[in-house]
Every structure is written in C-alpha cells, then in structure tokens.
C-alpha cells in the first residue's frame, strides 16, 4: 500500500515542486497539496485542498484522507509574500502550531518532515566557520523569518516529544536558489545596483531548488528522525557572487543598508530586515556531513554551481565586464608581446 502525503505551502514554487516530485514517486499513493491560495501551476497526479493550516479544518483533512506523512513547507520567508509581518508571523507560528496539534490527534500520521532554514543559527562575528546541527547559535536571531523558524522548530520538538511514535525530520536548508525559484536572495541579486555592507564580505551558501526538493523527498521516503543541514558544497563570497551577476555593487555602511536597499527596490520582496542585514554582513556556513552520513543525501550541485544556474535562469552574466576585460587583456598582451619580441 502506498503512502498518503500531505504537503503544506503547495501553491508556492518549492511546495509545488515537492508535490509534483511526490506524485511521480511510485511509493506514494496519494499526494494532497494544501495552501490558502490556489496553485499557479497545475499539480498533475495530486489533489489540492484550499485550506488554511491555521484553521482546525486541517485536522479533518488528515483524518478523512488517512494521511500518514506530513511535509510542512508552509513557513513563509518574507513579509511581502504574506501581506505584512504580522500576518507572516501568524501564518508561520500559529499555522505550525495548528498543523502539529492536528497531527498529534491523527493516529494515522507516522512521519513529519519540516522544511526549516539555516537562518536559525543567526549570523555574527563569533560564529564558527561551519555550524553543525548540535551547535547553539552564538547570535540567536531576534526577528523576522529566522526567529519564526526558531519558534517553528521549538514546536516541532515539542510535538516529537508528545508523539514519540512519529518520526520527525527537520531540514535546515541553506538559501535556496536556482533558475526558477524567487526568494529574497534572488531578488537581491537581480537588483539593478546591489548594495553590500562596507568593510565586510559575507560567506554565502546556497542549495539548488532541485537539490532542496531531493533532500526533502529523501527525508520523506527514509523515515529517519533528526535535524539535518542541507546545502550545496562550498561557499561563495558575497562580493564574488555579485561579480558573477555582472551587476554593479555599491558598498554602504551596514546601518544604512536597509534605507539604501529599500530606496533601490521599494516594491520588491527583497528583504533588508535587521536579521537579513546581519546575514549580509557576516554570512554563515553549515556543515552537511550529517545529512551525507545519516540521510544518505548529498547535494548534486555545489554552492557555486547552484548560483551559476540561478544566473543562467535569470539571464545574468558579467558579459559587459567580460568584454571590457578581454579588450584590455588582449591590448595588454599585444603590448607585452611587442616588448618581449624586441627584448
């Protein structure tokens, strides 16, 4: 008998990818996508229920469909997507509480997978180069999505204690990037001028959207419990990333980044909250060896490759810079050659 999987946040890009991946999985009998808004793209082979996870109706869905696996991807990263920070916090925190309360009462549920974020580690000067899952943050996040993710993980741990028969996996994803996904980071790198923090160069780590889905899929089918860091191999410096986009960057003092950023992009979902500014100042790295060892998952694309695929998808490249530098290089080579042959 195949499994019955419920996916929250199914109408957004990653949720949709996850639903489609599960629908293709022969081990899965039914996939039920849940979200408050209808999906932008069709979800072939899956069912969609327009429901709010903050509403107890979700419990009925779990019971009536005999759901055994819940994949919670309904945590929203930017206020713009939710219609304000208050609504975002409500969806993230209250939504998770309701969902887990419903799971707790549903005996059919045997497996819960939660998409979390590496932002729970915070960002700051006293951070180790790479965080392992057991390390506690040196600079715990105090606001925004990161804080929500910390609270969500807290509720998930509480749920795991109350339902020890359920296997619970939390996946802390590095910033998801790729040719199609839209996040605060993809918006940031597509700004006409990219504001960076003066005097700092953050270490960034990305995971390709398809790798993120593979990791979640893997966790769904393996039934293993625990917390896992998920990221592409290696890191890329913020300055290096901006250079690869070919966009000009303007370094501004960290305290002014928010003002400058919002001035450049007043309507976009790019994030310049305090927490995000800290991240763009210090960056963060996570150690993925536990996922490799216990989950059997390694991202196929490194951080740098994932970033380059994002550039490809958004048609960004340092083309102008490249033509200028090739011109200068060949001119310089010619001069060097003349000088050399005369010598």
């Amino acid at each position: 008998m195949g499994r019955v999987v419920l996916v929250t946040g199914a109408s957004r890009h990653l949720g949709g990818l996850m639903v489609r991946a599960l629908a293709r999985d022969p081990g899965v009998a039914r996939v039920i996508g849940v979200d408050v808004v209808p999906p932008h793209r069709p979800l072939p082979g899956a069912e969609f229920i327009r429901a709010d996870i903050r509403n107890p109706v979700i419990g009925k869905v779990l019971r009536s469909a005999d759901v055994d696996t819940v994949v919670h991807m309904g945590v929203i990263a930017t206020p713009m997507q939710a219609g304000g920070r208050t609504a975002m916090k409500e969806i993230n925190v209250i939504g998770t509480m309701q969902l887990l309360a419903a799971c707790q009462k549903a005996p059919s549920v045997t497996r819960v997978i939660v998409k979390s974020s590496s932002s729970v580690y915070g960002a700051g000067p006293r951070d180790p180069a790479l965080f392992t899952e057991d390390m506690s943050p040196q600079h715990p996040p105090t606001s925004g999505w990161a804080k929500d993710s910390v609270e969500v993980e807290g509720y998930v741990r509480g749920f795991a204690r109350r339902r020890p028969d359920v296997s619970v996996a939390i996946l802390r994803l590095a910033n998801v990037i790729g040719p199609r996904v839209e996040t605060a980071m993809t918006e940031y790198f597509t700004l006409p001028v990219v504001p960076t923090v003066l005097g700092y160069d953050a270490r960034l780590q990305f995971v390709h959207e398809d790798d993120a889905i593979s990791a979640l899929h893997r966790a769904t089918s393996s039934g293993i419990s625990g917390v896992f860091n998920i990221a592409g191999e290696g890191i890329i410096a913020l300055s290096q990333a901006v250079r690869r986009t070919g966009r000009p960057s303007v370094p501004v003092p960290g305290a002014l980044l928010g003002i400058v950023g919002r001035g450049i992009a007043p309507t976009r979902l790019v994030d310049f909250s305090r927490e995000q500014v800290r991240f763009l100042t210090y960056g963060r790295g996570i150690d993925t060896s536990r996922a490799t060892r216990d989950l059997g998952f390694t991202a196929r694309r490194s951080t740098a490759v994932a970033f380059d695929e994002f550039l490809g998808g958004y048609d960004l490249s340092p083309a102008l810079a490249e033509s200028v530098i090739s011109g200068v290089t060949s001119a310089a080579r010619m001069l060097t050659t003349r000088g050399g042959s005369r010598a």
Binding site: L130, G234, I235, I236, A237, S239, Q240, P318, E322
Partner: peptide, 11 residues
C-alpha cells in the same frame, strides 16, 4: 572581475 575563483569554507 568575473568572480572566477574559489573561496574555502572559512572564507
């Protein structure tokens, strides 16, 4: 200029 270099995990 092209950002074509490798930075290790420590930066």
């Amino acid at each position: 200029i092209m950002g074509n270099y490798v930075v290790d995990d420590f930066g």
